[in-house]
Structure formats: C-alpha cells, structure tokens
C-alpha cells in the first residue's frame, strides 16, 4: 500500500479542515448576521464547488497561484518557489474546494439558534462577539462537527483539483486518490483495490460515527 500517499492525504485533509474551521466560522457568522443585501452573492460563490467540475476550479486556482498572476509572482518572490505543484498550493485549492462542506452546515446551525436567545444575552450586557462564543457556538456543536467531518472526508477523497494544481509528485502532491489512479493505470489492480477499500472503510466509519453522535442528546439539549 502507498503509505506516503495515505499520510499525505491525511495531512492535507487535517490542514484543510483546520483552515476551514478558522475561516468558515467567521464567514458563516457574517452570512447569518450581516444585514448586507448582496450577501447572497457570497453564498453563491461559497457553494460554487458543489456544482463546478473540479477541473474547472483547479484550472482557475492554478492560474491564480501560478507565475501568470501577481499573487503567484509575489509568493514566489517571498518563498523562493512557486505555489503550483506544492503542498501549500494543494492546500489553497482544497480549502476552496471543500468550503461549502464546512460553511453550509455552520451557516444552517447558526441560523437555527433562536434569535431571542441572542437578544436576551445582549440585554444582559454581553457583547455580540461574546454572545456568539457563549451561546451560538455551544448550541451549534452538531453543525460544527458535521462541517468538520464533511470537510475532512471530502478532502480525503478529492481527485480532480489535486491533479490540476498538484500534479503527481510522490510524497508532495500524490494523494490517495491519485495513487489509486496510478495503480489502475499501471494495471496493479491489487494495490488499487487495497487502497480503495481502505478509503471506503475510513470514509464510512467517519460518517457513521458522526451521524451516531448527532443522534445523542448531549450535543444539543432540546426543550
């Protein structure tokens, strides 16, 4: 089995999930509570990866971080190498690609918190940010867990975007799905089957444990 590919996929999925947790929560907060009329545009952009072919997304990311764009040139000047075909470039693409899988559950859960709880908190002198931390986050544990798990599982299995942005460099950008593709290309069906089965089992276990957790009462006490 291609353990370096598995390890790379796990690292990429973990890093992507962390970045999405850090960026997705403020973004979802903004989508739920902002009075801006044009926020539907932001929601549409966040949801794009759900319908766009991964190759299209990957193509644009490749252009955006490559030497043709100011961003890519600036990064290359600072880091000494370009972003395409590196782990960092892969991470940027993964974050964008998995964005809706984190932001949408976050948004749905934040929006479901009774607004009067927030008003009660504000009237007790607690700031909007502290209210979000003390009331909204604890009542949104299900949505946060769902978003985290879906981001992780989704990144673990991504293929098209990786191929476009990362290529196929062993230990750097060759993830599990690329490795399976390679095995099949070289007619090594046994290796492909082992890795595929592993990915299938891991994905199933993650999702099954998430759904079972969501059923339990302690996550969100209901009246």
């Amino acid at each position: 089995m291609d353990w370096s590919a598995i390890w790379l996929s796990v690292r990429l999925a973990a890093a992507t999930t962390l970045v999405l947790l850090a960026t997705g929560i403020p973004l979802a907060y903004w989508i739920v509570y902002s009075p801006r009329r044009w926020k539907f545009l932001v929601e549409a952009v966040v949801a794009l990866p759900l319908v766009l072919p991964p190759t299209v997304l990957g193509f644009y990311v490749l252009i955006a971080i490559g030497p043709l764009s100011p961003v890519g040139r600036a990064y290359a000047r600072v880091a000494g190498h370009g972003l395409p075909f590196t782990f960092e470039g892969l991470l940027i693409a993964s974050v964008l690609y998995s964005m809706p899988f984190a932001v949408q559950p976050f948004t749905a859960e934040f929006a479901s918190v009774d607004r009067r709880l927030l008003e009660a908190s504000w009237s007790l002198g607690v700031s909007r940010l502290a209210t979000f931390r003390r009331v909204v986050i604890p009542l949104s544990v299900r949505g946060l867990v769902t978003g985290i798990v879906l981001s992780f599982a989704h990144t673990l299995g991504e293929f098209g975007v990786v191929l476009m942005v990362g290529g196929n460099l062993p230990g750097v950008t060759r993830t599990v799905s690329i490795s399976i593709y390679d095995s099949v290309q070289s007619l090594d069906y046994a290796a492909a089957s082992r890795t595929s089965l592993l990915l299938l089992i891991v994905s199933f276990v993650i999702l099954a444990s998430t759904y079972s957790l969501q059923r339990s009462v302690w996550l969100k006490p209901r009246h």
Binding site: D114, R116, L117, E119, A120, S121, W122, S123, L124, G125, V126, S127, V135, L139, K220, P221, R222, H223
Partner: peptide
C-alpha cells in the same frame, strides 16, 4: 449592552 436593562419575553428563552 450598555443600557443596563433587564428583559423578559413571553416565553422564558433560557439558554438551553
């Protein structure tokens, strides 16, 4: 937050 009021709604709306 800075009005120092107390507020009670028709329903209790306690933090669950």
């Amino acid at each position: 937050q800075s009005r120092h009021i107390g507020l009670v709604f028709q329903d209790p709306t306690l933090f669950p």
